[in-house]
Design a protein around this nucleic acid. Structure first.
Length: 473
DNA sequence: AAAAAAC
């Protein structure tokens, strides 16, 4: 925390950093915060997960906090979810500094946003389309903007927002401070910063830090029609705490999430054709751990920060290396480890190699897990579940649960394991049982480590289902 | 060609 203090951050923000569990500045924060607090324009090359939001959020809050009333800070983001997430983080950072940030995005009732604007936010975090809409309706005026931030600028340009961005920039005073963040620095970004930024300082995290070193990367070669079964096996074996499975199209996402649900997994899909209310609720449930598996298009590939995501499955290989880096960056965040596993059909092997070349990281081949391994995985999950019930000393529930498991099971090995537990006297010291059982032994070097146990008994995913539907995926 | 984003 001392290191934050020497950056000249005020006590109120130090206090929220404390609450948020931030201990010392990340490299991008260390570089960007003093520059931005000095009032300089800045171009930052960084992805989320590097502490980017606080890197611009802290100077932003310092700048707007002592002046009430009008909108003085504007942040533009490419997706609605990102706008919500950034606004939430700013509100946490600014909780003791009387700063209020409001997300402004499409798909939400405009009347509700107009009402929220009456609470006089000093900061808005907006997607370009809806902000333009508000500006045309004269709900929002940007004439008092002191600081404007373009977040994930490369992505906004890819999505064709350049005209909107220029229009928005022209509605703000020349005297504003401008910060631009982008994961990549193509020509178009350089042109944009030349046109709208004044003598910007360039900060970046070193190239070798760009791919997340804490993510172990694997691939499996598997024909399309077997992908679904292989994914189920992997889920049973690896038992992710939270996982994201990426699909190529909205339709693939619908099909995969339906198939997973049918098989008893706690999964939900998210993509741009769902109502915003549905998107919001799915993401919230995933953050809260109500859902274990988020099935997503690339709408969730960039910037989303959900803690506890231990596994990313590229059910369909991403289009390009950039998308790959963004997707796998959803795990291995904030110093935690994670595993990324890409499904490759044989004719995509060249494509995989090109991704490997671009990211300069080896993607290790993993054999398709055998059915035996998967059953063993299921069995382990079931045994763990039983052990937990015993641990909690709730033997009546234990009995019911165990019978339930037996009824659902189609695995001989599992039935015998459960039977063994059932016939055991329940008064043996239960805690010891877990210690004795080496449930997460690592047997295969080519297999990602199993970092996390499944959630507690409140979880709503039965470990398996005997009605095995095999929808094509 | 797909995804994202305003009504």
């Amino acid at each position: 925390m001392e290191k934050f203090k020497v950056l000249g951050i005020s006590d109120e923000i130090i206090r929220s950093l404390n609450d948020m569990g931030f201990e010392e500045p990340t490299p991008i924060q260390e570089q960007a915060i003093p520059e931005a607090m000095a009032g300089n324009d800045l171009v930052g090359q960084a992805q989320t997960g590097t502490g980017k939001t606080a890197a611009f959020g802290i100077p932003l809050i310092e700048k707007v906090r002592h002046t009430g009333g009008r909108i003085q800070g504007v942040i533009l983001t490419p997706t609605r979810e990102l706008a919500i997430q950034v606004a939430e983080e700013l509100n946490k950072l600014g909780q003791y500094a009387n700063v209020f940030a409001l997300p402004i995005y499409g798909g939400q009732e405009i009347g509700r946003q107009i009402k929220a604007l009456r609470k006089n936010p000093q900061i808005i975090v907006a997607t370009p389309g809806r902000l333009m809409d508000h500006m045309e309706r004269r709900n929002i005026r940007l004439g008092d903007t002191k600081i404007l931030i373009l977040d994930e600028a490369d992505e906004m340009l890819n999505m064709g927002f350049i005209d909107d961005i220029e229009k928005i920039l022209k509605e703000t005073p020349e005297s504003r401070q401008t910060l631009l963040f982008s994961a990549t620095m193509p020509r178009a970004i350089q042109n944009l910063s030349q046109k709208f930024l004044k003598n910007p300082t360039f900060v970046s995290i070193k190239a070798k830090e760009v791919t997340v070193p804490l993510v172990e990367q694997f691939y499996v070669e598997v024909p399309d029609r077997q992908k679904f079964d292989v994914l189920c096996r992997l889920l049973d074996i690896q038992a992710p705490e939270l996982a994201i499975a990426f699909g190529r199209t909205k339709r693939r996402v619908d099909e995969l999430s339906e198939a997973l649900k049918k098989r008893g997994y706690s999964a939900e899909g998210i993509h741009g054709d769902l109502t915003q209310a549905k998107r919001d609720s799915v993401l919230r449930q995933f953050r809260d751990g109500v859902i274990d598996i988020l099935v997503a298009t690339d709408v969730a590939a960039r910037g989303l920060d959900v803690s506890g995501v231990t596994h990313v499955y590229n059910f369909d290989i991403p289009q390009d290396a950039e998308s790959y880096v963004h997707r796998i960056g959803r795990t291995g965040r904030a110093g935690n480890t994670g595993a990324a596993l890409t499904f490759v059909i044989p004719r995509e092997l060249d494509h995989l190699r090109s991704i490997e070349r671009h990211t300069k990281r080896k993607i290790v081949r993993m054999p398709v897990p055998s059915l035996t391994d998967a059953l063993e995985g299921q069995q382990k999950l079931a045994v763990e579940k039983l052990l937990r019930v015993i641990e909690e000393g709730n033997y009546d529930e234990y009995k019911g649960r165990a019978e339930e498991l037996l009824n659902q099971s189609d695995s001989v090995a599992l039935v015998s394991a459960a039977l063994k537990l059932l016939t055991k006297e329940p008064d043996t010291t239960p805690v010891k049982l877990t210690e004795e059982a080496p449930l997460r032994a690592r047997r295969d070097r080519n297999r990602p480590p199993q970092f996390n146990r499944r959630k507690g008994p409140g979880e709503n995913r039965p470990p398996f289902n005997k009605n095995r539907s095999r929808p094509h995926a």
